[in-house]
Design a protein around this nucleic acid. Structure first.
Lengths: 350, 350
DNA sequence: TTGGCAATCTGTAACGTTTCAGTATATTGA
DNA sequence: TCAATATACTGAAACGTTACAGATTGCCAA
């Protein structure tokens, strides 16, 4: 028996990457003991545990992911599900970096699961669940009644949504308070005398569309300003579409004297449209915009901005998913990011 | 024996996800036969093959990735290795989408492997190779003498670099022709009478730094223009640093009358710096900039731009890696993207 | 008839891990 | 002293797949 073990494991030493068998051979223990020693199981002697862990560290043992996954079903993978056409660009990299930051010192890997315009957004989720390709999922473009969240709840896979749902179901999320953003934006515009405001909102159907629209409406009535309808475009439209629509609106008699914009790139288009109509930002009209990187003030220093931190969102989302996987209650893994004040870069001399 | 098989596999039917055993039971064949039938092995009867494939499709059989990976060592994973601090933002999302597009109808998953400023760039590569976590790797921020490329060649793992190396070693790459970009930019500036040019280059040490610098220098001597040194900053510096340095240079007597900028965000900073110095873009100075999304003309319509398509880069890189994995010769998997003409958005009436 | 051979199909083992059901040894209680 | 029990360890089996080394069948040449 002892001979047999020695023979069998002699080859273990020869091969490249150390496995439990290698460790078992080196320590003279069984693979079971080694396995348990590495995960601090209670029924392993303190000295044995230390010895095994020391040797493991010395020879750079890393558990084989496929082995673990096959045996336990745990993948040690978090999947970030992204729309390949509509996601805001800086959004994506920041979210990824935020997630990366959090999972860096865990065994988790991040896989990006894309889906395209033409696909049912549920497709990638079904794929992940059916193939068991991830232990946790992060989705964006969340809807009030989100079939993906419902599906994942039904199938018991941990997830977190970027944006809240409104289905009476509880799950982890991280959201930026777009209601507060819209309210602050309107108040600010009213504060500098703007009275006829237009909103470039997120696309209809997404949760933060209604949050933004509601904040906008509530604040309008609070400050006694009026709305100039601008809902034939959203931040999902192309730059050109937004630009043309803005120019159109700005050429009318009853044009807005203030804009609230939910995305930085769209704001470029709004300003271009304003100038197409021969009007001047800061004189004829003011614009409050969300931005995720601090660049808009370089574009036009008259712009008023509110910062949204997507990197933070990524971190929070990752933390939430890992928390759920780790057994925390989904209801405790929700967070809301409060907007910064409305910031002005206009020089005081103006 | 027949009884035993039947009993054993009855459970296979009960469980959730179909495996080869499920298929074997349903078709009355052995798992080996099923396995081979699914991958069109030659020694399987034509009718059997069809039958197995039909049933597999019907019940939605998907090979278990962990099983395949454990048995074969193939992970069906491509890893994109990214610096979490220095990568250009739009870059990241576009590359990811480009890669996604290509691997969408393959069994490959995309994992993002980040590394931070503080780390040795070789760390994530070592990790991937040592743990066998990917079948192929894509790296960016390529250097002329790139230790990562060397390491991967030595260890026999397929990869592609975004940017060329210059080590006398052959490997797949995709690169944008930054030499041509710089040449065209200088020619254009010279064409509109600019004679004292400054270059905001990629960071020293990366391959495309020298390409850009060389193109710039060659074209300068070709058109007989002179260089205003501007190499204390690069596109890796912060917006504020670039802006201040630009303002500084523009306040000097011998200031440049033309800039070539290797990145769009940096261009915003250059323009801001120019205006900080009280000068006017298009009158006192012209700027040619690379951009990866069509937004700069909204910023200042006097800007001259050259487009770089990162989504295409992602696709090409993915194709290259998959090609190498598939056995193609690395030397045949190299591509160079030719810059667009220098485009002007300035109105003709100006 | 027999041997050989091609065409199809099959069981077993192995990849590295964890879990189950133990086994051996020392320790305790009566 | 004996049995019961706690402590520390162990082998075998299983997860799903593929590769290896057969096994079975039918057909044909000799």
């Amino acid at each position: 028996m002892d001979r047999r073990r020695t023979e069998k494991n002699a080859e273990a030493l020869a091969q490249g990457r150390p496995t439990l068998k290698t460790l078992a051979f080196m320590t003279g223990l069984g693979v079971t003991t080694v396995s348990r020693a590495l995960k601090d199981a209670p029924e392993i002697g303190a000295e044995t545990r230390r010895r095994v862990q020391l040797v493991a560290k010395q020879i750079g043992y890393r558990p084989n992911r496929a082995g673990v996954r096959l045996r336990t079903g745990r993948t040690n993978v978090i999947s970030l599900v992204l729309n390949t056409e509509r996601e805001i660009m800086s959004f994506v990299s920041d979210i990824i970096y935020g997630v990366s930051e959090v999972i860096a010192d865990t065994p988790y890997h991040l896989i990006v699961t894309p889906y395209s315009r033409s696909q049912d957004p549920l497709d990638p989720i079904r794929y992940l669940v059916e193939t068991g390709s991830a232990d946790g999922v992060i989705i964006s473009r969340t809807q009030p009644n989100d079939p993906r969240a419902r599906y994942m709840l039904e199938h018991g896979i941990p997830f977190a949504t970027h944006g809240r749902t409104d289905m009476g179901l509880v799950h982890p999320y991280h959201d930026f308070d777009n209601y507060a953003f819209a309210v602050e934006a309107v108040r600010r515009l009213a504060g500098i005398g703007r009275r006829r405001l237009a909103l470039l909102s997120p696309p209809v159907g997404l949760s933060y569309h209604s949050h933004t629209v509601n904040g906008f409406a509530d604040a309008l009535s609070e400050v006694g300003a009026s709305e100039v309808p601008f809902n034939t475009v959203s931040i999902d439209h192309t730059i050109e579409q937004i630009r043309m629509r803005t120019a159109q609106v700005m050429r009318r008699e009853d044009r807005p004297d203030g804009f609230v914009s939910s995305a930085a790139a769209a704001t470029l288009a709004i300003v271009a449209g304003i100038e197409d109509a021969g009007l001047k930002l800061g004189r004829d009209v003011d614009v409050v915009s969300k931005q995720s990187s601090d660049l808009l003030h370089l574009f036009r220093r008259e712009l008023l901005v509110v910062n949204e931190n997507f990197r933070l969102a990524g971190s929070e989302l990752a933390r939430s998913v890992l928390g759920w996987i780790g057994g925390a209650a989904p209801g405790t893994l929700q967070s809301l990011s409060v907007p910064s004040e409305v910031l002005a870069y206009r020089r005081s001399v103006d």
